[in-house]
Amino acid sequence: MKKLSLRQQKALTGYLFSLPFIIGFIFFFLAPFIQALIFSLHRLVIVRGGYELVFTKWENYRYALTVDTKFVPTFVETFLRMLLDVPAIILFSFFAAILLNHKFRGRLLARSIFFLPVILGSGVVLALEQTDYMRTMMEQSANAFGSFMSGPALTNFLMQLKIPYQLMTYVINVVDRVPEIIRASGIQILIFLAGLQSISGSLYEAAKVEGASGWQSFWLITLPIMSPIILANVVYSIIDSFLAANNELVVYIRSTAFGGAGFGIGTAMGVMYFGAVAVVLAVVVAIMSRFVFYQE
């Protein structure tokens, strides 16, 4: 056998290391992905020892969009909620990361509390919480914060500020969802904090010597350096909100596929869902990457 050059050897090692994922991607991801696209155009019948496909063209899509009464409203609602939540999550987690990056006593404790939602913020426990009787009761009795921050008091306050109506409804909606937003921000805070810590302190010192205020160095140093991380976090938050276990659309697609309406229609819904996710991500990345600043 001919001896490989060092470069070829390295390339081969690289392939060997990545091989598990290449195999897995082809068999457990790409193949089912393509199959899903095919299934969405078929009616699927389970027969003895396997299944058969009956080609129905766009029938499944037509059914999901025009016959099914719950799919379109749930779809729209899920997307609106995502549009509402993601900016709030990004703003909050950026702010929280800056807060946690300060040096103060009890910082470690504060950090471990802020990251706690990473552990608790997903799955069944969260879903149970939302309908829990005890929680609503305790919230009513203990939440002076809630009554001050939401409802008529806040609306009046915002009215007096004379801010535009749309912005006002947005703020009110967000404030209503403050606990959800804070609890969806764990990983984003973690990522932002890691980014903030990677900025070298000498940049700020130089800016200070040049007479820049803290405000200026935030806009001219922190924000540009953090911009790729903001983009990454926006993408992560969008994906996270789409995949959340308590996402109504997800639950609905699932119950459609395995109960009643059939595999084909459920898969067609899933394909449309994926299409919409892809479009949203592409648009967001295209718009945001114009503002992203890369070092080097």
């Binding site: 790409l30 089912p32 992905f33 199959q35 299934f39 699927l44 699932r254 595999f263 899933g270 869902y273």
Partner: peptide
């Protein structure tokens, strides 16, 4: 491809899987 696996909702591939 690794990033792609993150973007596709598992619900879409539920039936084939």
């Amino acid at each position: 491809a690794a990033i792609f696996t993150l973007v596709v909702p598992p619900q879409m591939m539920m039936v084939p899987l």
